[in-house]
Structures are given as C-alpha cells and as structure tokens.
C-alpha cells in the first residue's frame, strides 16, 4: 500500500479538529461555539501545522509534493480539473449563503449571579451588611427542632402559593409557566446555586427580584417578582429554609470558600 502523504495527514487533522470543535464540543458537550471563536482556534491549528511541517526543508518539500503533483503532473489532469471547478464553486456557494442569511438580533449578554449590594435591606429598612446578615430562624435547627419544622412547613406553603409556577414543583426551574420565560427561572436542584451563596444573597434576590439586579443581570428581562411587596421578612427567611431542606443542599456560610 502507498504511504499516506504528509499533506493528507495534515488535511485530515485539520478537518477532524474542525468537526470536533463545531459538533462535538459545540453541540454534544456544550452550547454551539460562535463562528468567530472557531475561526480563531482553526487559525491557531493551521499555524501549528505549518510550523510542524516547515522545521526541516526536506519535510516541507515532502509536504508540498502532492500539491505540486496535482498542479503540474500530466497524469493528474482529472484531479486538477475537478479541483479547479470544485474549489471556486464551494467558495462562491459559501459566500452566497453568508450574504443571504437573515440577520438576527444580538442576544443580551447576561450575568446570572451578579454581585449583591453591600447592605441587605427589606423595603427601606437595613437588616445588616450583606456578609453579616443571617437567617434568624436557622438557629432553631439545633435549638428547637419542633419550631424549626414549623418554619420549614411555613416555607413550603409560601413556596407552593407563590413560587412553584415558575421554579417548579421539584424546585428544578421547570414550573408550568417556565417555558414562556426568558431568562429561565433558577433551578435550585443545580448544585452550583445553593451551596455557592449565602442565605443573605438569597434574601436579597427574593426581596428585590428581577428589577433589583444591577445592569449586567439584565433586570429588564427577568420575571422574578419583587417579593418584599408581597411577603413578610419571616416568610422570605422561611422559604429560604425550605429551599435547602427540600433539595438537601446547605448554603455557604460567611468565611468559607471564595
């Protein structure tokens, strides 16, 4: 069997890399990668290949051999003809599809958990600083489990009267209104949420809702209501307790991590 030429190997590597970026990473593993980013990676790979083949003169000549042959040899006429027709055709097709594509509006870049303000407030009353504020009913977990259970149950009732429409019965962000919302409601079963934030952060998000977010959180889009208009402080702390009791996660406490 003929030895595969260096050029073919490089071409195959190049194409495999593109397929990997475009369809495997940007499809199966995560969301599609923007074309400009793919182009950047591909340029890097192209340069790497060039460097690799041009370190020695002999290797470079070997690399260019099939190119030379295709362009010059008399016995490669058909291949040459096919390439000379195919390449311009593909390129012009690509140009056409690019121009004919409908323009799309740019999405809002959105930061999901932006930095909270320094002070935690309920309506206009300052509770404490964001770092020091803590759930006043949390202590009953150890001191008075019966009383704690009452707070959990109250939180449950608050949740199913107000929140499950969006955040879902299983707290997974898939409530029966959720499909029509953009951004989607938070999924409290996601291990990246409750364990990474303090209860005071949750109190802030719940009491001030979407409109309380700083600009990078696109406050104009989110349907998360301003709950301080509807719920009491105790109800908010209770629903915060319920979220962790139901999911089994514990909130981050001040001083650990980050």
């Amino acid at each position: 069997m003929k030895k595969t030429s260096l050029f073919t190997i490089c071409l195959v590597i190049f194409i495999v890399c593109w397929i990997f970026l475009r369809f495997v990473i940007g499809g199966i593993i995560s969301a599609p990668i923007p074309n400009t980013v793919i182009a950047m990676y591909m340029a890097l790979i192209f340069i790497a290949i060039l460097v690799h083949v041009s370190v020695e003169d002999s290797r470079f000549t070997e690399f260019l051999r099939p190119v030379n042959e295709t362009l010059l040899d008399d016995n490669k006429r058909t291949r040459r003809l096919i390439l000379v027709i195919l390449i311009p055709l593909l390129l012009s097709g690509y140009t056409y599809s690019n121009i004919a594509q409908k323009a799309s509006p740019l999405g809002d870049p959105r930061q999901a958990h932006p930095k909270p303000p320094l002070d935690l407030t309920y309506k206009d009353e300052v509770i404490d600083t964001m770092q020091k504020a803590h759930n006043p009913y949390r202590k009953y977990e150890k001191e008075d489990p019966e009383l704690f259970k009452e707070h959990v149950e109250n939180g449950r009732s608050v949740y199913y009267k107000n929140c499950f429409f969006c955040h879902g019965d299983h707290l997974d962000g898939k409530g029966h209104f959720a499909a029509a919302l953009n951004p989607l409601p938070a999924n409290f079963q996601d291990p990246g949420i409750i364990p990474n934030y303090q209860e005071s952060f949750f109190f802030w998000r719940i009491s001030k809702g979407g409109p309380g977010l700083p600009n990078e959180g696109t406050p104009w889009n989110t349907a998360m209501p301003i709950w301080e208009d509807i719920l009491t402080q105790e109800e908010i702390w209770d629903v915060i307790i319920f979220l962790s009791e139901y999911t089994g996660y514990t909130y981050r406490t001040f001083g650990e991590g980050h």
């Binding site: 030379n68 362009l71 010059l72 390439l83 000379v84 390449i87 311009p88 055709l89 390129l91 012009s92 097709g93 140009t95 056409y96 121009i99 004919a100």
Partner: peptide, 25 residues
C-alpha cells in the same frame, strides 16, 4: 449583493489556482 459577490469569489479563486500553477511551473 448576493448576485455580485459569489461569482466574483469564484472568478478570483479560479484565477488564484491558475496563477499558482504558473508560478510553480
């Protein structure tokens, strides 16, 4: 522009290929 650019691109790439062959020859 969708009727102008694609033929232009085709022509250009064709020219480049032919030019390349000449150059190597």
């Amino acid at each position: 522009r969708r009727f102008i650019y694609p033929p232009l691109v085709a022509l250009l790439s064709f020219g480049l290929l032919v030019g390349l062959r000449r150059f190597i020859q």
